[in-house]
Design a protein around this nucleic acid. Structure first.
Lengths: 239, 239
DNA sequence: AAGGCAGCTTGACACAGATCAAGGCCGTAC
DNA sequence: GTACGGCCTTGATCTGTGTCAAGCTGCCTT
């Protein structure tokens, strides 16, 4: 994972708003200096190690989170343990809004993660009379919803090969927004996570990666893939 | 379809804000008298016949809609014609917000539909300095997102029988909010729509209905089903 | 260097749901 | 009344993906 946040920063990542490299992408990206300082006073910066829970489904939703660094897995479980990953959160993403008093899904870190944590009460009081902030929350929610709808189309109507290709293209494009365009797509999540995101089994994901490699569309590298034929690959993902 | 809106209304459904029976559920539900009158002046009430398009994916998103009466089907298509229905809209639902300048999905009426249509510019100007309105839009977006995430779990991880049961329970509960609790769940959409919503084929949906009937969980009636054993049925939908 | 183990890949086989094909039901048109 | 068309159901068969079971690879520990 090359520098998703705080690249070459002299800052310790704690109480360091002015150097936060994802700020322009985050919920607080359009606040002016003074407002941002007030906002920052509401935040707790919290660091999580690998595979720690930020929050869990059905817990009282007492906080919201702005992801600063690292990657989180968002998921729902069925009573018998079947899991559906509903998304991977990247730096700049905003987590934890719920339609009721409890979280509607669980979130945990994949590698290490840093967040700005805001308790619900103070956060709501801050935004409730700031239309530009509410407008930004709306934009975030609308984008998330659109992503969720794309994912419904994928889950309901695409073949295994199309699912994997579409996932890799979507993930590459989201990383490009943060890291810039690269040929190698890093995949910090494991095969089981990809399977649970795509509604497949780990075996099918593994076989499909191998198949795409045999077809000379990708090369599998440690912790990622290199896309060989972007044209043909994007076509497969779209179709 | 028994009286989803304007039940026993003497009003003609046109420019008739004060009698709009879904108002409390709609986006404009918390506006006070004066504000609501101003809001109403921005609206065009539009009536659609069966199977008409309200808007289509990739069209310029120049308007948003508040559904007043009837039911709409929201869907996305793949280039080869495969369709995924991403939701059914009911009276009170708010449609047409997009993360870019174009609609990210298509919407058309199932039976007849009445909407309040707002052009984007005036609508945005109305809400942009009204925090309570923005907050309400946020609530709507968050609820939609949560519904979408539930649907991802369904599409990715449930069996055909679980999908159908969960669909019927979810649909029954949404109708209950409008019509009150009933034993008979009316299904204004066809089998193909249900199939495209659940990521199944029409044959599998049909067979599954028959199977649920053989198992004495439901009775199939014209344009709907009657739930015989709500306890056992809810359990199947949850599991 | 050896052992262990977590994560990944591969193979053989099974099955849920898709596909293909036919037939039934019911409302509408004439 | 009967013919048509849309929608739904049912049956027979096929197939993509799941399941079960090894084995491989690279990394961490000792």
């Amino acid at each position: 994972m090359p520098h998703l946040a705080f690249p070459n920063s002299t800052c310790d990542g704690f109480r360091c708003a002015t150097h936060c490299s994802v700020r322009p992408l985050a919920i607080c990206g359009e606040l002016e200096q003074l407002e941002h300082e007030e906002f920052e006073r509401l935040a707790q910066h919290v660091r999580y190690g690998p595979k720690e829970a930020l929050f869990s489904e059905d817990e009282v939703a007492d906080a919201v989170y702005s992801l600063v660094e690292g990657i989180a897995r968002l998921y729902k479980l069925l009573p018998d343990g079947r899991r559906q990953i509903i998304g991977f959160a990247l730096p700049g993403d905003f987590l934890g809004m719920a339609p009721s008093a409890r979280y509607s899904f669980s979130a945990d870190s994949i590698g290490g993660v840093t967040v700005c944590k805001f308790f619900r009460g103070p956060f709501m009081r801050f935004i409730e009379n700031r239309p530009h902030m509410l407008l930004r929350m709306n934009e975030f929610a609308t984008r998330e919803l659109s992503l969720a709808q794309d994912q419904m189309l994928l889950l309901g109507r695409r073949s295994a090969e199309e699912k994997v290709a579409a996932f890799l293209v979507g993930w590459r494009d989201r990383l490009a927004r943060l890291e810039g365009v690269t040929k190698t797509v890093s995949l910090p999540m494991g095969r089981q996570d990809i399977a649970d995101f795509l509604g497949l089994t780990i075996e099918t994901v593994s076989r499909t990666f191998t198949k795409l490699e045999r077809e000379k569309l990708i090369v599998i590298v440690p912790d990622g893939v290199r896309v060989l034929d972007p044209k043909r690959f994007d076509a497969l993902a779209a179709a």
